[in-house]
Write a protein that binds this DNA or RNA. Structure first.
Lengths: 140, 140
DNA sequence: CTGCGATCTCGTAGTATCCGATATCGTAGA
DNA sequence: TCTACGATATCGGATACTACGAGATCGCAG
């Protein structure tokens, strides 16, 4: 199968869907959706983020993130507060339960990556990052 | 930017969102959504596909595809018909207008890929494909 | 203190996605 | 032949995602 080399973009989307689905299945206990998982994973470093930063990190618009953060806040996983020094920006921070969830997510992500990338050469992984980065920065 | 090497999975999702958005912007004239574009791109080889095959190709469930194909059919881009020899399966084929749209999409995809991958080594692209493929096939 | 740009939220609308149930079809087995 | 079982796709209903435009709040320059 997969006789033709297959467009990088199509392969990319397939991989995204597939990994997202695996992750959602593994993390079903948390009761989180894909977007929420993605947001928490990007918050996992513990640094506070603004809505804009987070939107850029997950690849969506700030408006989209509002509802996601709403739900995360309602569940007590994050808090919203003004950023000291610039009260326009909203600072999104993990709570204790949010940090716990983020750790679980990070471990699942790391485990999945380990399983997938086990037999591959570092050069391949490096090439992957180069391509992904180039694709992310492409403009219309 | 990109100070930390950043998880492959997060980078993957970011790239998917970014490229999808660029594509949707470029192809706004067609009046198609991301899922529809994805489906047409996967049908672009002209071969007939079944709903299951197409679902696997785009990375979603057959139920999800039904509504997408519904819309494509209503717009006259595809036809549904029974597959000769197995009337359970539904054969999805491009119409003339669907083929035209698919060509436009393929060109946009190819152009985007060319722009993004221009300066990169073939080895990097090869590594990208290896990683993406491994990620796609990972299991829970 | 006035205007302008930045940042976020809210309202609204259309899609996407899935689960469970159902209908149709193919195939193996009695 | 006919019956049971697996495969395939659709339908109904529910939830979430995503975006756009409008509005609110705030920082900053003059």
């Amino acid at each position: 199968m997969n006789a033709p080399p297959d467009s990088p973009l199509l392969a990319l989307q397939r991989a995204t869907h597939a990994t997202l689905h695996v992750l959602a299945t593994e993390l079903a206990d948390l009761g989180l959706t894909a977007a929420e998982i993605n947001a928490l994973a990007n918050l996992a470093d513990g640094r506070p983020h603004t809505a804009s930063e987070l939107a850029a990190a997950v690849g969506s618009r700030p408006t989209t993130l509002t509802s996601v953060v709403d739900r995360l806040e309602r569940r007590g996983h994050v808090t919203r507060g003004p950023r000291p020094g610039d009260r326009r920006a909203v600072q999104i921070e993990l709570t204790d339960s949010g940090r716990a969830a983020a750790v679980t997510i990070s471990e699942a992500v790391a485990g999945l990556e380990r399983r997938a990338l086990d037999g591959l050469s570092p050069a391949a992984v490096d090439g992957f990052h180069q391509v992904v980065r180039a694709l992310t920065e492409v403009r219309a």
